[in-house]
């Protein structure tokens, strides 16, 4: 009976945490709406979440595109179908790798930083001090970060994919001599604006939302000690990475299954 009770306790605790996270999200959404008139706060966070993650995203995108170019060419040339290289690279990037990998990078770079920042603000009573100054931290701190995360993620994912396509071109055309026109036209013939590009963007918006939500929740509910904050940071990366990969499967099945 003991393991059963332990399982039950674990499930109950997980449910309670999920409930708390949903309640927190509702408040955070309210805060995002109320912070809109003060958009400079959002801009500030776009800098912290977007600009500071831009470099790592672009560099990673370039390398991933180059690897796709290499591997894609080696496989396609077996069927003398290297003319489809552009299509293969672009579809992989736009549908999957762009949104997913940039989201994983975002979780590691920006999500963990968010949790650490909020957790530390809590540990040093900055959030309590704001409350006592009649400033709602949900509006002043949480709202702009949630908005910035949701705005930054699709832009980062688009950069990742675009740079990746260029990386694939660099290898396909530069190293293997795939004709430039063939590379781009096979892509244009096969990649569809709505079914592929737009769905990829929708994915990245969802990922940005989930990562920021998890990061803010973990920070806001962190145990206010240095150990508690570091554990919360780890949880942010683990939880949001799992959510990205699991969510990607569900979204892919929904989006591309029927079409």
């Amino acid at each position: 009976m003991k393991p059963l009770a332990a399982l039950g306790r674990w499930v109950l605790a997980a449910l309670a945490r999920l409930g708390a996270a949903v309640l927190f999200l509702l408040r955070a959404l309210g805060g995002s709406v109320r912070v809109l008139p003060r958009f400079s706060l959002v801009l500030e966070q776009l800098y912290c979440l977007g600009v500071l993650t831009m470099l790592i995203t672009v560099v990673s995108g370039l390398f991933v595109g180059m690897v796709l170019g290499l591997q894609g060419y080696y496989q396609l040339v077996n069927f003398s179908a290297e003319s489809s290289l552009g299509l293969v690279v672009a579809l992989f990037l736009v549908r999957e790798l762009g949104p997913v990998l940039s989201a994983l990078l975002f979780a590691g770079r920006a999500g963990s930083a968010l949790t650490g920042e909020i957790g530390l603000m809590k540990a040093t009573e900055q959030l309590s001090a704001m409350e006592m100054m009649a400033v709602d931290p949900i509006v002043r701190i949480i709202g702009p970060r949630l908005l910035a995360g949701v705005l930054a993620m699709p832009l980062l994912a688009a950069m990742f994919s675009a740079v990746g396509v260029l990386g694939g071109y660099l290898i396909g055309h530069g190293q293997f001599g795939v004709d430039a026109g063939v590379y781009w036209s096979s892509m244009q013939n096969g990649v569809e604006l709505f079914a592929d590009v737009l769905n990829g963007i929708i994915k990245s918006v969802v990922f940005g939302f989930v990562i920021t939500w998890v990061a803010l929740f973990e920070g806001y509910h962190a145990t206010p000690t240095s150990e508690g904050v570091s554990r919360a940071t780890t949880r942010t990366v683990v939880t949001s990475s799992l959510a990205i990969l699991g969510g990607d499967y569900i979204l892919t099945a929904l989006m591309f299954g029927g079409w």
Binding site: L120, M121, T124, E125, Q126, S128, A129, E131, M132, M133, A134, D136
Partner: peptide, 19 residues
Amino acid sequence: LFAMRRKMGMLFQSSALLT
């Protein structure tokens, strides 16, 4: 509550300055 807090100042043990 927020209106009431505007009539109060509070000094926290850790100072709680915005870093």
